[in-house]
C-alpha cells in the first residue's frame, strides 16, 4: 500500500513537471542559473545512486575483480561512445567472462 502511494506520488509529480509549461502555455522560462543547475542533476543523482547500489547494509563496498573490471569497462566505453546500451552489454560480457575464467 505504501509502495503504491509512493508510485502514485512520483507519477503525479512527474506528470506535473511534464505538463507545467505545455498545459499553461506559459511563456515564462527559467532563470539561466536554474537551467544550468539542471545539467548537474544527472551527475549528482547518478553518482549517488551508483554508490548506493554497490554498498551493502553495513556500508561496506565489497567488489571482486570481475565487478571492478565490469564497472571500469562500462564507464570507459560509455564515456568514449556516449552509448549506455553498448557500455552495458560489453561490460556485462566482460564481467561474465572473468567470472567464468575465475
Amino acid at each position: 500500500m505504501t509502495m503504491l502511494s509512493a508510485i502514485i506520488v512520483v507519477g503525479l509529480g512527474t506528470y506535473a513537471m511534464r505538463a507545467l509549461f505545455l498545459v499553461t502555455l506559459s511563456d515564462k522560462t527559467f532563470p539561466p542559473l536554474a537551467l544550468r543547475l539542471l545539467e548537474y542533476v544527472a551527475p549528482a543523482v547518478l553518482g549517488s545512486l551508483v554508490i548506493s547500489m554497490l554498498i551493502d547494509s553495513e556500508a561496506q563496498v565489497a567488489l571482486g575483480a570481475p565487478e571492478l573490471a565490469g564497472l571500469a569497462a562500462a564507464a570507459i566505453i560509455a564515456a568514449k561512445t556516449r552509448s549506455h546500451v553498448l557500455a552495458l552489454f560489453s561490460a556485462m560480457a566482460l564481467f561474465w567472462l572473468l567470472r567464468w575464467l575465475a
Binding site: A42, P43, L46, G47, L49, V50, M53, L54, G70, L71, A74, A75, I76, I77, A78, A79, R82, S83, H84, A87, L88, A91, M92, F95
Partner: peptide, 12 residues
C-alpha cells in the same frame, strides 16, 4: 550498477 555507471559517464 553497470547501467547506471554508464549513464553517469554519458552525463559527464
Amino acid at each position: 550498477p553497470v547501467l547506471f555507471i554508464g549513464l553517469l559517464a554519458v552525463s559527464i
